[in-house]
Amino acid sequence: MKGELICAVCPVGCHVTAEWNETDLLDVQQAACKLAWPYIRSEIFDPRRVVTSSVPVVGGEIPLVSVKTDSPVPKDRMRDVMQSLAQVTVQAPVNVGDVVVSNILGLGANIRATKRIKKVS
């Protein structure tokens, strides 16, 4: 199979032409760097995304703390991750990198805080 895809590894966003069969990626043309290969392979066979969102903080200087999955999760599970995050709240203080939910939905990714939130009394 052959198709045009956009490499989304970095802001350059190369428009590449890729060729693949049932099991593997065979060729990538028009990419500015090597990073396109693993991305395009995953885009074709197992597309994944990092999910970012925010959850309420109790006792913090601001009402929300931003969070992310610490590795990409399957694209079609993004909404499930969001739904499960809707039940989550955390206590201040929070530090960047703190695990908020470990191994969310068994997908192998942790939800981690991406902002430092001080505690206020």
Partner: peptide, 16 residues
């Protein structure tokens, strides 16, 4: 800007 995609040039990784 809580999404990721920052830092690919100066840090070599994509962070929020």
């Amino acid at each position: 800007c809580i999404h990721d995609g920052f830092g690919t040039k100066v840090l070599g990784e994509s962070i929020t």
